[in-house]
């Protein structure tokens, strides 16, 4: 089992100025992650950055699945319009 807050803390520690929302049932999670680190990167590189931060928990299968959206601050602002 893993708390959504534990995932949020890992992501916030690993990404600059990150705004992270995580929900989940202990093994399956959904995350919405906003960080300027994602600027000019294709989605696959953004997702790899996130997976790298969570690698140990994915490898041990404590974290079984995480569905994510990765946004730059500008993209997040555009979604709120």
């Amino acid at each position: 089992m893993m708390e959504p807050d534990a995932i949020r803390a890992l992501l916030e520690a690993g990404l600059n100025s990150a705004q992270v929302e995580v929900i989940g049932d202990g093994r399956h999670f959904q995350a919405r992650i906003i960080s300027p680190d994602f600027e000019n990167l294709p989605l696959i590189k953004r997702h790899r950055m996130v997976y790298d931060l969570l690698q140990a928990h994915i490898d041990s299968d404590v974290l079984h699945a995480i569905s994510m959206r990765t946004l730059t601050p500008a993209q997040a602002a555009a979604e709120q319009d």
Binding site: L43, I44, H47, S67, M68, R69
Partner: peptide
């Protein structure tokens, strides 16, 4: 190219 999330987005 990516996994399910990226494909859908």
């Amino acid at each position: 190219l990516g996994g399910c999330d990226i494909i859908m987005e």
